[in-house]
Amino acid sequence: MMLGVVGVVSRAHHISTKIAAMSSSSLFRLTRFPILSNPTFLPSFHSVPHSFHNVDDAVSFFNRMLQMHPTPSIIEFSMILTSLVKMKHYSTAISLSHQMELKGIRPDIVTSSILINCYCHLGQLTSAFSVMGNILKRGYQPNTIILNTLMKGLCLKGMVQRAMEFHDDVVAQGFRLDEVSYATLINGLCKTGDTRAALRLLRQIERPNVIMYSTIIDSLCKVKLVSDAYDLYSEMVARRIPPIAVTYNALINGFCIVGRFQQAVGLLNEMVLQCIDAEVRTFNILVEALCKEGNVKEAKNVFAVMVKQGLEPNIVSYSSLRMGTVLLRK
């Protein structure tokens, strides 16, 4: 039996009221989602969009489609909207969808999910949740992709606590979130400096991945809690989650910040031994830090390893060495 859309409950109203107070936009409401006895989930949209040289070509093609008889399917319109999104022309995609509706072409679930994505990128969360409400009224439940988009939209606006409350809301309603969901929340918490909250969230995740760990490790290193970051790295390795270049970059940078260059060089050597492709940025972190400390000889050794690895030094690499040489002469 299909249940109707449940009205706004106290928690949702509390969230939307706080957001309204923070924004000049009108109040939007996070609706509690009904649990359907036989739920119809939104399909994930994997389209191959038309190839357009620029936004004008896409708009022109869209307008020609609007004049066609019979009218092309909504799938074809969605393909063009997707192309515009890939070109980051979110406002244009929204405008064309409105034109489509004026022509009596009703958006389907895929089109609605595209609109939610556009509104979130533009920070227009009121409109994003309004589209979500329309989806629910048509008897559908959102898939994980849409929920992730809304959480990311809240995080991009700096409303990380609202995103956490939204997370609590949908989980309480029985929705299953994925790795992207939690990586989004952890990234949002770390960007607002709430690394401890990110760490608590990590502990609640059954199967955290290397991106989640690396994000927190980087955040800890930036505030010089390098020992804590290394402990987290050791925990990750113990859980057989292999570190990646991003993980090592964060730790190497952290050790350089606190002047522990021996450990930083040791991590670089570990990367080489583990056959993890270091980036030019990885070597530049060390070269710059060593040069600032006047250890130009060791910086040149690191530089030589970079070249031996087949990486091409960039302007940062050469500038750091030049700076170190100048400082050494003073």
Score class of each variant (00 low, 15 high):
residue 186 I to A: 07
residue 245 A to D: 02
residue 173 Q to A: 13
residue 81 L to G: 05
residue 322 R to F: 06
residue 133 G to Y: 03
residue 256 C to W: 06
residue 160 V to Y: 02
residue 237 V to G: 02
residue 51 S to H: 07
residue 51 S to A: 06
residue 323 M to Y: 07
residue 183 A to K: 05
residue 75 I to K: 09
residue 30 L to V: 13
residue 263 Q to G: 09
residue 3 L to P: 10
residue 197 A to Q: 03
residue 294 G to V: 12
residue 99 Q to R: 07
residue 146 I to H: 02
residue 265 V to E: 03
residue 176 R to N: 14
residue 220 L to D: 04
residue 56 D to H: 12
residue 47 S to Q: 01
residue 206 E to Q: 15
residue 191 K to C: 00
residue 228 D to V: 15
residue 200 R to A: 15
residue 181 S to D: 00
residue 144 T to Q: 11
residue 34 P to R: 02
residue 329 R to H: 00
residue 114 I to R: 09
residue 169 D to L: 04
residue 179 E to A: 14
residue 32 R to Y: 08
residue 144 T to G: 04
residue 149 T to W: 03
residue 229 A to R: 04
residue 261 F to K: 14
residue 36 L to M: 08
residue 82 T to L: 10
residue 220 L to C: 10
residue 29 R to L: 13
residue 270 E to A: 11
residue 194 D to S: 05
residue 79 M to K: 10
residue 53 H to V: 15
residue 105 I to T: 11
residue 266 G to D: 13
residue 200 R to E: 14
residue 142 P to V: 09
residue 19 I to D: 01
residue 300 K to Q: 15
residue 301 N to V: 12
residue 3 L to R: 13
residue 45 F to A: 11
residue 257 I to M: 13
residue 9 V to I: 11
residue 166 F to D: 08
residue 77 F to R: 09
residue 223 V to Y: 00
residue 254 G to Y: 04
residue 49 P to L: 04
